[in-house]
Design a protein around this nucleic acid. Structure first.
Length: 305
DNA sequence: CAGCCAGGGCATATTACTTCA
DNA sequence: CGTGAAGTAATATGCCCTGGC
């Protein structure tokens, strides 16, 4: 997928110009954008709005937003083919995997041990979060088959040996990262089945896969936000320059107008060129027809078309 | 059918750890 | 070798949606 995010579609919006006055109004908005690749393969993608409108993928797309997403029901198939081919290597790859022979998850200690301590912070959400984590652990256990206390194995026990309680951070192997990246390219979110399958193949806990995807999405979004920020900066510069140019032009025209006679009655039927569409017209707009006419290309010229 | 609640997913902010210049 | 920056795994929290009751 990459970050070849384009901004082709700030085309139809904004730029409200005052019709009669000579104000110069510049506007800019950014609507939902997706890469062509993404649009073809994506059901309603999760919105990746900037924090300003920190809402969800269920929100309307009407407001300025930036969207990216990957999808495809083909994920499972791709996953299967890819993962199966890589699985053997992955089983061996991780130096952190303590029991590669079992070929299952739950090799790492549970970082969620700390979640228990967060119980004290209260609130049902916290409880729910803890429940979630315990669920993950239990699913881990199920997958592991023989897990009892063993599931809190490597890391915590290592830490306990060291006497340090700080969480240790595993480093994903290149193979794991590559496979996760591949999966992410196929689908930026995972359903539980996909998560389980991927976790199994990577010898990771489903929670780790989930976390990786969450972080990956966050990084993607952050990068995209930076790209968008640069884009908007450039737009702003361009518009500022345009504004400056138009103001200057306006000044010049005003000066020119002062130097010329103010009142120039026009013949009843005169060929004029609409300054906006550059078409010839010989009948002035009804509202202007009976009146003496100042030719002023800036007074809503397109009204004549 | 509406309301409530639990469970689950995701976004976001933050922390903690690792790696590298 | 120490250090700060960058990268990233993991945690905490909140919001939303869905399904069951």
């Amino acid at each position: 997928m990459g970050l070849d995010h384009q901004h082709p579609n700030n085309n139809n919006n904004n730029s409200s110009s005052s019709s009669s006055g000579l104000h110069l109004v510049l506007g800019l908005s950014l609507t939902t954008t997706t890469t062509a690749e993404e649009t073809t393969a994506t059901p309603p993608p999760p919105s990746t709005k900037p924090k300003l409108c920190s809402s969800h993928h269920h929100d309307d797309a009407a407001e300025p937003s930036l969207t990216l997403g990957l999808s495809g029901e083909s994920f499972q198939q791709v996953l299967k083919t890819k993962i199966v081919t890589d699985s053997a290597a992955n089983n061996k790859a991780g130096g952190y995997c303590e029991e590669p022979t079992s070929g299952e998850m739950c090799r790492q200690a549970s970082p969620h041990g700390s979640a228990v301590s967060s119980f004290s912070s209260g609130g049902c959400r916290v409880v729910a979060a803890c429940v979630k984590r315990e669920r993950d652990l239990s699913s881990c256990e199920e997958a592991d088959g023989d897990g009892d206390g063993e599931r809190v194995s490597s890391r915590v026990s290592d830490e306990d040996e060291d006497g340090t309680n700080a969480r240790k951070k595993l480093r994903l192997t290149k193979e794991q990262s590559a496979l996760l990246e591949d999966s992410f390219k196929q689908h930026s979110t995972l359903n539980p089945k996909q998560k389980q399958a991927l976790a199994r193949q990577l010898n990771l806990r489903p929670r780790q896969v989930e976390v990786w995807f969450q972080n990956r999405r966050a990084r993607t979004k952050l990068k995209q936000t930076e790209v968008d920020c640069e884009f908007l900066k450039k737009c702003c510069e361009t518009l500022t320059e345009e504004n400056r140019r138009l103001k200057k032009e306006l000044q010049e025209l005003k000066a020119l107008k002062l130097a010329q006679p103010l009142y120039m009655p026009m013949p009843a039927a005169t060929l004029t060129i609409c300054p906006s569409c550059e078409r010839l017209t010989n009948d002035p707009p009804p509202s202007m027809a009976p009146k003496p006419h100042f030719y002023n290309p800036f007074t809503n010229p397109s009204a004549a078309c």
